[in-house]
Amino acid sequence: MTIEERVGERSTAHRQVVTSEAIERFAKAVGSKMRAEAPPTYMTTLRAAEFELFRKLGIPLASILHAEQQYSYEPGGIPAGSEVEFVSVFKSFAQKRGKSATLSFLEFETDVYRLDGGERRRSGSSLTTIVVRGELP
């Protein structure tokens, strides 16, 4: 099966508690004063589902460059102490011939949900575009 034929493949569902310590550490790293809720780009810490797909597709982490990132946010954000669930899907694949190597562009979409009091509420989504230089497995 070629990598192109694997478009549509989904990760398993990942769950994580967004602790106030994790928010504080991330906020400090990006110069944010937010503490009660996660800063907007905190969603990047929820990439375990994407990384699972990179592994399944056989793409070595060190060969990956981040090309684009898009986020959308539902009202309410991710308050400290929330449990979130996220799942990624391999959304698209394209190749371009660069000057010295073939460049592969892969998109991964991740939906993030908050699990509060038995409710599962959409919190936001992420679209990551990565570029891989050279041959893919």
Binding site: T41, Q69, Y73, G77
Partner: peptide, 10 residues
């Protein structure tokens, strides 16, 4: 005001 979307290109 709160952020609703954020897009970046590297």
């Amino acid at each position: 005001w709160e952020m609703s979307r954020f897009n970046t290109r590297f």
